[in-house]
């Protein structure tokens, strides 16, 4: 088994030396200090730990760091100061999507992954896209509306 994993996190090269079965979330949070990535369930069910790997939304709590070898990982820290990240986080703020906040970074990542693929999502598209992200506070309506708001406000940003 190889013990060196090389990948990019938020554009920066990361060299991980150790057990490749180490969970990606532990590398992100403990080694890289990216604590915007939250652990809600540890089994890929709640989506709080969602990150984007090569353009696809993944749950970092069930992904061994070895599977990240050669990939580009984006976390909330990597998008929050970009125009797209600002567009989504501001829409979440203005649309009332945020309550306790623990699911929200993962939810923002899910919205980001959706809007990159689908610039004009319907309510159904949005509900489907965030269906792997559990929120216990909002009942989802205002999150859905906030993603719609980000799509509308972002306009050309998403094309």
């Amino acid at each position: 088994m190889r013990d060196k994993v090389v990948f990019h996190v938020n554009g920066e090269r990361v060299e991980f030396i150790g057990n490749p079965m180490t969970r990606l979330i532990d590398v992100l949070r403990d080694d890289l200090g990216l604590t915007g990535v939250k652990e809600g369930c540890g089994e890929g069910e709640c989506g709080a730990c969602s990150v984007i790997k090569d353009g696809k939304l993944v749950t970092s709590c069930i992904m061994p760091v070895g599977s990240a070898d050669g990939s580009e990982i984006l976390t909330i820290e990597g998008i929050r100061d970009t125009p797209k990240g600002i567009c989504i986080t501001e829409a979440f703020r203005d649309g009332g999507a945020v309550q306790c906040g623990f699911c929200i970074p993962g939810m923002v990542m899910a919205a980001y992954a959706l809007l990159e693929e689908n610039h004009h999502p319907t309510e159904e598209d949005i509900r489907m896209a965030i269906s792997g992200n559990i929120c216990r506070c909002t009942g989802y309506d205002l999150i859905v509306k906030s993603v719609q708001l980000a799509a509308e406000r972002g306009g050309r940003l998403w094309q």
Binding site: T35, T75, I76, R80, I88, T89, A97, V98, G101, P105
Partner: peptide, 10 residues
């Protein structure tokens, strides 16, 4: 909400 942005930004 006053706490929305810091939560959304992680």
């Amino acid at each position: 909400r006053v706490d929305a942005m810091e939560k959304a930004r992680g």
